[in-house]
Design a binder for these strands. Structure first.
Lengths: 357, 357
DNA sequence: CAATAAAATGGGAACGTTCCCACGAGAAAA
DNA sequence: TTTTCTCGTGGGAACGTTCCCATTTTATTG
C-alpha cells in the first residue's frame, strides 16, 4: 500500500516547463511570469498537490516546526499551557507537534531524539518528575536546537525558562492560612527532585517563621505525586496526636484527594481543616467545597515560552549559555480564595421552588 | 544560527569506509563485519549521531509516524484516548504526534495538510464541532493515507471508526432517571451537526416513549457546547411553568455547569432535580454532589483506534472503502451512579474529632 | 591449488525541493 | 546600432539516507 503524491516535477512535465519555475511559482518567488504562475497554481490545486515537507526541510535545513514536550496532560495545567504556546507559534508561521511522556523518563529521551531526528527548529519542554539525567537536553543544545523550559527547569543547566514565583506563591498561600487563624499547618510536598517542590516547601517554612510559628518537620511529607500515597499520608496527618488544622498541598489533585480523606473521616472543611492547593485546575472550582488555590497564568506561561523560543530561533548566532546567563521569566500567581479556607454564606437550600408543590 | 548534525558520511569518512557500510551497520543489516559494525556504532555514539528522519522518510516513503488530531484537550476525554492510542502505537514502533484544533475548522484543515506534508503513515482523528466539509479527509483517503475516526465520525464518509453506543447509552441514562421516579426530564443536547448528539437525543426520546412519558420538545435544547449557553438554557428550564425534575446532559461539563445554575437557584440535587452527564470526566467524581454519568472506555477507544489504524497501514493493498464497508467498532459504556441522582447516606459531619477540643 | 560460494564492501541512483548560476529575449539606455 | 539591464526561464548541485548492483575479499570445497 503506497501513497501517491503529486510532485512539482509532475506539474512541470504537464506544463512543459522546468521544476525550477514550478517551485518559484509555488513559493511566491517574484521572478515568474504571472500567467505561468497562474497556470501552475491552478494545476497544483486541481491535482491536489501537497508540498513534501520532508524534502523541503531536508533540503533547506529548516522545518518550521517546533515540538512541545510535556510530562503528562491529564490535568488542565499542561493542555492550557500548550494552547497558549500554540497560538503564538502558529501566528508566527510555525507548526506545532506535541509529545507527552506519561511521566516516563525513557519516553522523554525517546521523544527528544524523535524531535531531533525530525529536525524540529526548537523545543519547549517541561521534564518528567523522574528525570535526573539531563544529557538528552544538553545534547539538543550542543547540536544547536533552541530549548525553552517551563514549569520544571533543570537546576544545573543554564537554559531559558518560564516559571512562576513558586516561593512567594507558597509563602502567600501559607500566610493566608495563618491569617485565618490556623496554627498547625501541614504540607504535602512534591518530590525533592523538583525545584518547584523545594521552593514551595521553603516558602511554607519561611511563612511559618515570619509569624513565629514553630516549624514542625513531622507536618511535612514529600511524596511522588501518585494519588494512592496522598490518602496514606493524609490519614497519617489526621492520626497524629495533634492533627493539623490546615493543609497546604503541592498541587490541586493532591489537595482534592486530601479533601476526600478529610471528608471520609467525618471532618469539616474548612472548620476542622482548611485546605489550599496550587495551580487552580479546572476541578478546583468544581469540588465541594470549592478549593482555595494559587492560580497559575497557564496561557501566559505558554505564550511567554513560545515568544522566548521564537527569539532563540531567530537569533543570528546561537546563544551560548555556557558563557552567558540564560533569560528566565517569572510570572505572577494569584491566590483564589474559595470555601475550603473561607466559607461564604450558602444560599438557603430550602427556598421554595416556584410553580411546584 | 544553524544546527550541526553528524551524518553517516562524516562517520564513513572518519573510518575510511563507504556510507553504504555505515548505513548497514546502523540499521542492523546482516551483511556487515562485526568489527566494522562495532566501530561504527561506537563512533556514532561518541559523536552523538542523530539519524535524519527527514532524509529517511524522504528516501523510503515511510515515516513510521502517525498523527492524532483532536478538536480540543481541556476535558479528560481526549487526553486519555490519546494516551491509550499512543501506548499501542509506540509498542508497534510508531512515533506519535498530536495536533489539537481548538475546535476550529480552519486549524483542522491546516493540520491535516501539515500531517500530509510531513508524510505521516496514518491519522487518527476526531473532527471539530464546526466541521461540515470533509474534503480534507477525503483528500487524505484519495492520496492513500489511512484514516481512523473516533468519537465523531463523518456520516457521509465510509471510514473506519470507533464509537460508543451513544443511542443505548442515552437510553439507559434516561431509563435510570425514570426508574428513580422522574417524569419530567429535560435534555441539554449537543449540536445537530454531530451524529452523537442526534443519537443521544433519539435515545432520550425513545426511553421516554418506552415508559409512556410524553415527549415534550420544549424540554430539549440543542446548543453549541459553549459554557455560557448552558447557564442561559438551564435557567430557562427552571423558569418553565412546570420545571423539569431531571436533566440529561450531553456531556459532563454541561452537566456540571447546569448543576451550578441549579445550586445557585437554591434547589437541591438530586431531590429537586436529578442530573446525569456523559463521559465520566475526571471532574464528575469531584463535583458536589458527585455526578451520575455514562462512562466511556476512553483508553480502550484509543487502543482500538490505534489497532485499526495499524491494520490499515499494514494492509498490502489500500482498502477501498468506496466499494466495501469500512469497519466500525462500537464499544460499551457504563452507567456510573453517584449522588446527583441517587443519594447515599452521608457520613455524619458532626463526628467528634479525636485529640482535640 | 583452482574453483566456487559466501561475506563484506563500495559506487551510484533515487527521493522532492530549493537555490545558485547561466542564458536568452526583449527593453532601455548609451 | 551597440551595450547594458531586467525578466523569465532552465540546468544542475545539494541535502542524508537506503537500496540495488557490482566488486573485492575471505572462506570453503572439490
Amino acid at each position: 500500500m503506497k501513497a501517491k503524491y503529486i510532485t512539482i516535477i509532475d506539474i512541470a512535465r504537464q506544463l512543459n516547463i522546468s521544476k525550477s519555475t514550478v517551485s518559484r511559482a509555488l513559493t511566491g518567488h517574484p521572478n515568474v511570469n504571472e500567467q505561468t504562475r497562474k497556470a501552475v497554481l491552478e494545476l497544483a490545486a486541481s491535482q491536489e498537490y501537497q508540498r513534501n515537507s520532508l524534502a523541503l526541510g531536508f533540503s533547506r535545513h529548516k522545518t518550521h516546526t517546533v515540538g512541545i514536550l510535556v510530562p503528562e496532560f491529564m490535568s488542565t495545567y499542561f493542555p492550557s499551557v500548550i494552547v497558549g504556546a500554540q497560538t503564538v507559534l502558529q501566528e508566527a508561521g510555525y507548526n506545532v507537534v506535541i509529545c507527552q511522556q506519561n511521566e516516563s523518563y525513557e519516553t522523554e529521551v525517546a521523544n527528544i531524539k524523535l524531535l531531533l531526528s525530525y529536525r524540529v527548529d526548537g523545543i519547549i519542554v517541561s521534564h518528567t518528575k523522574e528525570t535526573r539525567n539531563f544529557d538528552h537536553f544538553t545534547l539538543a543544545q550542543r547540536i544547536g536546537i533552541p530549548l525553552v523550559f517551563f514549569n520544571r527547569i533543570p537546576e544545573d543547566m543554564n537554559v531559558p525558562g518560564v516559571v512562576v514565583n513558586d516561593y512567594e506563591a507558597a509563602f502567600q498561600a501559607v500566610e493566608h492560612l495563618i491569617k485565618i487563624g490556623r496554627k498547625c499547618i501541614a504540607h504535602l510536598a512534591g518530590p525533592e527532585s523538583l525545584v518547584n517542590s523545594r521552593l514551595r516547601r521553603q516558602g511554607y517554612i519561611d511563612a511559618l517563621k515570619k509569624y513565629n510559628i514553630p516549624y514542625n518537620p513531622d507536618l511535612v511529607l514529600s511524596y511522588d505525586l501518585t494519588m494512592e500515597k496522598v490518602k496514606i499520608y493524609m490519614k497519617h496527618f489526621l492520626d497524629l496526636a495533634t492533627p493539623p488544622d490546615a493543609l497546604f498541598a503541592i498541587n490541586d489533585p493532591t489537595a482534592i484527594a486530601a479533601m476526600e480523606v478529610v471528608k471520609a473521616a467525618g471532618l469539616r472543611i474548612p472548620e476542622d481543616i482548611a485546605i489550599v492547593g496550587f495551580s487552580n485546575d479546572f476541578s478546583a472550582e468544581l469540588v465541594y467545597p470549592g478549593l482555595t488555590t494559587m492560580a497559575q497564568p497557564t496561557s501566559d506561561i505558554g505564550r511567554t515560552a513560545a515568544n522566548m523560543l521564537l527569539q532563540e530561533m531567530h537569533a543570528k548566532v546561537m546563544n551560548d549559555y555556557s558563557i552567558k546567563k540564560a533569560p528566565t521569566v517569572t510570572l505572577p500567581t494569584k491566590l483564589i480564595i474559595r470555601d475550603s479556607t473561607v466559607k461564604k454564606e450558602q444560599p438557603s437550600l430550602v427556598k421554595k421552588r416556584k410553580g411546584r408543590i
